[in-house]
Design a protein around this nucleic acid. Structure first.
Length: 235
DNA sequence: GCGACAG
DNA sequence: ATCTTGTCGC
């Protein structure tokens, strides 16, 4: 017991991460779960992801910007970097954010929304990596995870449907059935400056009139592919 | 009491 | 995340 709440901090990292936890507690109240963003305003959507070498010595971060109407990619960037800390649940931001920030610098045009592979407010202190990135960028962000970190939900019945993810009586995200059952849903959570309904509607749009059946929305699918491909060229 | 635990 | 074989379905 080192944390006092939901996720314990591994003993080896306790001393370093307790101040980090304090930072999360301090920043969490600044996360905004609303804002002006609406579907009609969205033209460019960015997807970001990180791939790791098997020995965890090298990482490749990728960024793909997609036109929300045509679903065509309009910008692609990638960057190699060295992970400075291991993966520790609830501290993913501190492992991946250096990569994200360096690749975002290459953007030629500012996207209207950023999608991250991971969580927004689905987090023991309500500030997952997508939320903290949103605070720093001061831009709308959404987190999309393939596994549930915390909360409960009932399985959406059919493809295209969703259900609320609830924790301590509060709605913290949406389980979205992006592929046909029995495939597991993907787990959406607000990062920053976006409301629940807009988040769900935006993500749902990516699966409308789809030629390929994909589990991830196009920006994240392409980012995932790019990071993997570029990492492969170096190992 | 044990185990859970984004990537 | 990454590793890893065969197998199911279009």
């Amino acid at each position: 017991m080192t944390d006092g709440k939901f996720l314990d901090i591994p003993k080896d990292f306790r001393k370093e991460l307790i101040p980090v936890r304090q930072e999360q507690v301090l920043l969490s109240p600044h996360v905004l779960l609303d804002g002006d963003l609406s579907l009609e305003d969205i033209t460019l959507v960015a997807g970001l992801d990180v791939a790791y070498s098997k020995d965890d010595k090298l990482a490749c971060v990728s960024l793909v910007v997609v036109d929300f109407r045509t679903l065509e990619p309009v910008e692609e960037h990638f960057e190699y970097f060295q992970p400075s800390i291991p993966y520790i649940p609830s501290f993913l931001y501190y492992r991946e954010s250096p990569g994200y920030h360096s690749v975002i610098k290459h953007l030629e045009e500012k996207p209207d929304l950023f999608l991250f592979d991971g969580n927004g407010i689905i987090h023991p202190y309500g500030i997952g990596l997508a939320s903290q990135m949103g605070l720093e960028l001061q831009q709308p962000t959404v987190g999309i995870a393939k596994k549930l970190l915390m909360g409960k939900y009932v399985d959406p019945l059919k493809k295209g449907g969703y259900s609320q993810i609830v924790f301590e009586e509060k709605v913290i995200g949406a389980a979205f059935q992006s592929a046909d059952p029995p495939a597991k849903p993907i787990f959406l959570s607000q990062g920053h400056l976006i409301n629940f309904n807009t988040m769900v509607y935006v993500i749902r749009e990516f699966f409308q009139n789809q030629i390929f059946s994909t589990k991830l929305p196009i920006p994240l699918l392409l980012a995932d592919k790019l990071a993997r491909e570029k990492l492969g060229e170096r190992e």
